[in-house]
């Protein structure tokens, strides 16, 4: 086994040299993850806002289910999406299995409950704060939800960040529905798993370093955004 120092230097040289294979994996990872998080936000944030705003029979059960779904096992989601998209499944005709689209669908399913549950928690306090005002202004339900989301925009970035963290680090679901096909569906996590099993630790480590760097950079950006918002009393 190569020593750890040489693996690190090899990994760094791969990053610095702009290795084509490495960067295509990174780009695909970001494309899949960001699209899934975007879809998760489009569905999860209004859902969380609605649950934070409205009282209806079964609301408690809906929240409990949503909270439970935050911990959905990725391989189970991957399997469910696989069954839906496989040739014999109801959506098999679309031919999406082993494509980035299938990976986006699986990741979106994984992150939506997480984003929705965190959004609900974040917006519930805001709803308490503004409920009288919004009712006094006779806002329509859709306007109320829109206003609440805008008021909680910085808090919601944390929910989106949590979704991003889950999606970018996820391997179980994407390997089942994507198949880890080189230049087609290979993303950072599946590549790390593969290269490690093959013994190519340098590439695996390079990808790992980049994954961690991206996670830190995104966290730092959101943290900085929230700090600015707090300074301006917008958060």
């Amino acid at each position: 086994m190569t020593d750890l120092g040489s693996i690190f230097s090899l990994a760094l040289s791969l990053v610095i040299s702009g290795d084509q294979q490495l960067y295509s994996i990174i780009v695909l990872s970001l494309r899949v993850t960001l699209t899934a998080v975007l879809l998760g936000c489009l569905v999860g944030i209004p859902l969380g806002a609605a649950l934070a705003t409205y009282r209806f029979p079964g609301r408690g059960a809906a929240i409990a289910v949503l909270n439970a779904f935050m911990g959905l096992p990725p391989v189970v989601v991957g399997l469910a999406v696989y069954l839906m998209l496989s040739r014999s499944g109801p959506f098999g005709v679309l031919g999406l299995l082993y494509t980035p689209t299938a990976m986006i669908i699986a990741q979106a399913i994984l992150v939506t409950p997480l984003i929705a549950a965190l959004s609900r928690q974040s917006l519930a306090d805001l709803h308490t704060e503004y409920d009288d005002l919004f009712r006094s202004l006779r806002l329509r339900p859709s306007d109320k939800i829109r206003a609440l989301i805008w008021e909680g925009r910085y808090g919601l970035s944390t929910a989106a960040l949590a979704g991003f963290g889950r999606a970018i680090a996820e391997v179980g679901a994407v390997i089942i529905v994507g198949g880890n096909i080189e230049h087609v569906t290979r993303v950072m996590t599946t590549a790390i798993a593969l290269e490690t099993s093959k013994g190519d630790l340098a590439l695996a480590l390079a990808l790992g370093l980049i994954l961690v760097t991206i996670a830190i950079a995104v966290n730092a950006a959101v943290l900085s955004l929230n700090r600015t918002a707090r300074r301006l009393a917008y958060a």
Partner: peptide, 13 residues
């Protein structure tokens, strides 16, 4: 009609 509350309830804008 409109109402002004004890707390101003200003929006984060």
């Amino acid at each position: 009609q409109a109402m002004v509350f004890q707390k101003p309830m200003l929006l984060r804008r």
